[in-house]
Design a binder for these strands. Sequence first.
DNA 1: TCAACCCAGATTGTCGACAATCTTTATAAG
DNA 2: CTTATAAAGATTGTCGACAATCTGGGTTGA
Lengths: 227, 227
Amino acid sequence: MEGGQLQAVENNQSLAERLFVTLRGEIVEGQLAAGSKISEPELARRFSASRGSLREALMRLESLGLLERRVHVGARVVDLTERGLLDLYEVREALEGMACRLAAQNRSDEDLTELRQMLARHEQQEELQAGKAYFQPEGDFDFHFRIVQASKNDLLIDTLCNRLYYRVRMYRYQLGMASPRAKRAFREHSHIIEAIEAGDGELAELLMRRHIRASRNNIEKKLTTET
Amino acid sequence: MEGGQLQAVENNQSLAERLFVTLRGEIVEGQLAAGSKISEPELARRFSASRGSLREALMRLESLGLLERRVHVGARVVDLTERGLLDLYEVREALEGMACRLAAQNRSDEDLTELRQMLARHEQQEELQAGKAYFQPEGDFDFHFRIVQASKNDLLIDTLCNRLYYRVRMYRYQLGMASPRAKRAFREHSHIIEAIEAGDGELAELLMRRHIRASRNNIEKKLTTET
DNA sequence: TCAACCCAGATTGTCGACAATCTTTATAAG
DNA sequence: CTTATAAAGATTGTCGACAATCTGGGTTGA
C-alpha cells in the first residue's frame, strides 16, 4: 500500500476530482481489490487529504457503481460476479445497439472519417501481430466509444461513456475477459461502419447487437463450462 | 421560498439522505425551478443543516442528472429542453425494450400476477373516468416500473428505476407531457403483458419499443408544430 | 457450553471556520 | 461612451474537531 501519487490529470481541477480519478483507476485495475473495505481515515492519510475531500470522491465512485456505501458502515469496492458481467452485456447490447441506429442517422462526415481511420489502424495492428491471438482491448473500446459519440444523444453518451465504461474496463482487467478473435471482430466492426455510412440505422443496430451478444454468449459458455 | 420541512422518509437514515430525497422531489415538481442557480448557504440555512451535509445531497442529485455542478461556480438545476426529452425517449426505448425481452425470459409467477392485477386496476380507473381523456400518469409509471423489475437484471433496474425515472417525472410534471390516449395505452400494455406471459421476448421487446416510440413521435410532432 | 448483554475502540456522520476562486461593481484610461 | 483594470463582496473548496453509531471482544448468567 504505497503513498499515493495523485495523477496530474488537469492541474486546475479540484482535489476531490483528482482523488476521484486516481481511485477510479485503482479500482478498475484492481489495486484496490474488488470486494475490499474502504477505510476513510487510511485513504485520507495516504493522499494527505482531508476526509471531507476523500468522501466527495467516494460518493462519485458510488454513483459510478464502482463502490457501495452503507450508512454508518462504510464503503466497499463492488465485487465482480459472473451475473454482473452478463447483466452488463445485456445493457450494453440495448444501449450500443441504439447508439448505432442513431449514429447512422446523425453522424457527421467527420465522425465517419474518424471511424474509418480507426478501423484502418486496427487492421494494421492486426496484421503486424497476427500470431498474438488477441486484439488490443483498448482499440476495441475506442471503437465502441467513438460510435456512441456519433449518436449525438447526450444522455446516451453520458450513460455509456461516463457511467458504464469504467465498469466494463474493470471486468476486462480483472476477469481477463475473453477477447473475441481479432479477425472476426474486425470484420464485424467493418460491417457496422458500412451500415452507418449507408444511413441504415436498422441494420447498424442489428449488427451491433449481434456483435455484443456474440461476446456475451462466448463468455457465458466459458463460465458455465469452467465452473 | 418556505422554511423547508424535511420529509420523514425513513427516520433512521442520514441527514444528507433526507436532504437528497426532499430536494429531489422539489426539483422534479419544479419548486426548485429548472435552470435556476443553487445557493449552498441559502439552502443550508433553510434546512438548518450544515453546508457539508447539503453538499453531499447536491452531489447525489448531480449523479442523478438533476443538477449540474461546475468547480468554483456552483450548482444549477438542469434545464428542460426538447432535445433532452427526445433523447430520454430514445434511451428508454432501448432499455425498456430490453427489459421486456428479459422479463419474458426471467419473470416469476408473482411478477406476472402483479402485472395482471395492475392492468385490471387501470382498466377500472379508465372506465370510471372515461371522459377525463387522460390516464393516471403515475399508473403508467408503475406499469413500466414493474416490468423493469421483472427483468431481474440489477444493472438495468438501477439504471431505469433509480437514475432515469426522476428525470422522466421531471419532464412530465413541468412540460406537462402529452399522455397517450388511455384506451390505446391500455391495449398496448395488455399486449405487452401477453407477450411476456407467453415467454416471447422478441415480441415483448418489439411491442414495448413501438409503444415508447409512438409516444416520442407524438411529442415530436407536437413540439415541431407548436414552435 | 452457549446465549445474551454490555463496554471499549474505531469508524462514520455532522458541523463551523478558514483559504482559494469567481463575480460584480466601481474606477480610470483611451 | 466604451473598454480595461482593480478592488470588494460573496461563493465554493478544504480542513480539523466533535458527536452519533457500528463492530468486536469480554463478561455474566442460565
